[in-house]
Amino acid sequence: MTKTHFQTGPVTIPIHGSDETVAVRRIYCVGRNYVAHIREMAEGDEKDPPFFFQKPTDSIVTGGEMPYPAATADLQFEVELAVIIGTEGADISPGAAFDHVFGYAVALDMTRRDLQFLARDMRRPWEMGKSFDHSAPIGAVLPRAEAGDLTEGTIRISVNGEVKQDSDISLMIWGVADTIAHLSAQYRLMPGDVILTGTPAGVGPVVPGDVLDASCAGLPGLTLTVTPALTAKEKAHAAD
């Protein structure tokens, strides 16, 4: 019998009001999808269209804590609407896009901003700044059958009780339908794919001990505490 080493179970997200979960397949992220965020970051022409990058599936965090990551002195939050795909499809039209949605959640695109900017300045990929352990905290999924087709709604995050980002998803350059259409022209979307749809203005740094409270369009909220960085012993135990 062949023995497989290091195999782990599927990464899942709880479904609100249910004992069931969603098994995550991939995490796609939309970059520069709010004009105000493009302006605050001063890192691109606001006339350019949004673009896509990915995070590893096991960067999902559904619990209430996130350890401060290694190799950074500038960990920043970005609150986002997450769309969970329920029906596969490619070259999906905007008019048919919501038919492929299983549900939604509020999520955070945690970013090692110093590493992201270093990569940007050297014209290298963003992986080290965006695609690290615990970089995709996400709340419980609310099925589309309950939430409807989301085209507007407040998106907000506070840190230690102080509101930092406060906008509306109607201000996305590509809304949910257009995001699905553009992404599905490049990838066949499958059940369990998670799409983080971009962040509005107001991003900023956090340190261990900070408590983040995120909300979006009436979806189940997400509360996250940043904890001290893991020790070498804790990292080894987590890998077991």
Rank of each mutant, 00 (worst) to 15 (best):
residue 236 A to G: 01
residue 81 L to D: 11
residue 95 G to A: 13
residue 60 I to S: 06
residue 204 G to R: 10
residue 231 T to I: 00
residue 186 Q to E: 15
residue 128 M to Q: 12
residue 67 P to E: 00
residue 150 L to H: 06
residue 127 E to Y: 02
residue 92 I to N: 02
residue 82 A to H: 11
residue 212 L to N: 04
residue 42 A to C: 00
residue 118 L to R: 14
residue 62 T to D: 09
residue 101 V to Y: 08
residue 47 K to F: 04
residue 41 M to H: 02
residue 35 V to Q: 03
residue 108 L to S: 05
residue 83 V to M: 06
residue 186 Q to W: 14
residue 55 K to E: 06
residue 219 L to I: 08
residue 167 S to D: 15
residue 124 R to T: 01
residue 53 F to G: 06
residue 72 T to A: 10
residue 95 G to S: 12
residue 80 E to H: 10
residue 77 F to W: 15
residue 99 D to H: 14
residue 157 I to S: 05
residue 15 I to F: 06
residue 107 A to E: 12
residue 96 A to K: 15
residue 158 S to A: 15
residue 219 L to C: 09
residue 64 G to V: 07
residue 72 T to Q: 09
residue 140 A to R: 06
residue 88 E to S: 15
residue 129 G to A: 08
residue 229 A to T: 13
residue 105 A to L: 05
residue 41 M to K: 01
residue 93 S to E: 14
residue 130 K to S: 07
residue 146 E to T: 04
residue 199 T to I: 05
residue 9 G to R: 02
residue 8 T to H: 12
residue 140 A to P: 01
residue 197 T to N: 06
residue 36 A to S: 15
residue 204 G to K: 09
residue 178 D to Q: 15
residue 23 A to N: 09
residue 168 D to I: 11
residue 109 D to R: 03
residue 66 M to E: 00
residue 31 G to D: 10
residue 155 I to K: 07
residue 90 A to Y: 01
residue 160 N to H: 14
residue 3 K to M: 09
residue 52 F to R: 07
residue 22 V to W: 03
residue 122 M to W: 02
residue 184 S to D: 12
residue 171 L to S: 02
residue 30 V to M: 13
residue 175 G to I: 07
residue 237 H to M: 10
residue 139 G to S: 14
residue 135 S to L: 05
residue 162 E to V: 15
residue 184 S to G: 11
residue 11 V to I: 15
residue 119 A to Y: 05
residue 223 T to C: 11
residue 196 L to S: 07
residue 75 L to F: 09
residue 161 G to E: 14
residue 151 T to I: 01
residue 115 L to Q: 11
residue 131 S to Q: 02
residue 211 V to L: 13
residue 32 R to E: 02
residue 125 P to E: 06
residue 34 Y to C: 07
residue 124 R to V: 00
residue 57 T to F: 09
residue 47 K to E: 13
residue 19 D to G: 09
residue 134 H to L: 02
residue 117 F to M: 11
residue 23 A to R: 12
residue 117 F to Q: 12
residue 232 A to M: 05
residue 85 I to K: 12
residue 27 I to G: 04
residue 13 I to E: 03
residue 199 T to E: 04
residue 225 T to F: 00
residue 153 G to P: 04
residue 43 E to S: 15
residue 174 W to Y: 13
residue 117 F to G: 01
residue 152 E to A: 14
residue 163 V to A: 05
residue 32 R to Y: 03
residue 228 P to I: 00
residue 79 V to F: 04
residue 66 M to F: 00
residue 77 F to Q: 04
residue 177 A to Q: 12
residue 40 E to Y: 00
residue 229 A to G: 14
residue 64 G to M: 08
residue 117 F to P: 00
residue 68 Y to I: 04
residue 59 S to T: 08
residue 57 T to G: 12
residue 210 D to F: 14
residue 227 T to V: 14
residue 42 A to K: 12
residue 103 G to F: 02
residue 228 P to F: 04
residue 212 L to Y: 08
residue 139 G to V: 12
residue 189 L to I: 11
residue 64 G to Y: 01
residue 93 S to P: 03
residue 154 T to Y: 01
residue 204 G to C: 10
residue 195 I to W: 05
residue 193 D to G: 05
residue 129 G to T: 08
residue 95 G to H: 08
residue 196 L to Q: 04
residue 64 G to D: 12
residue 174 W to C: 12
residue 42 A to M: 03
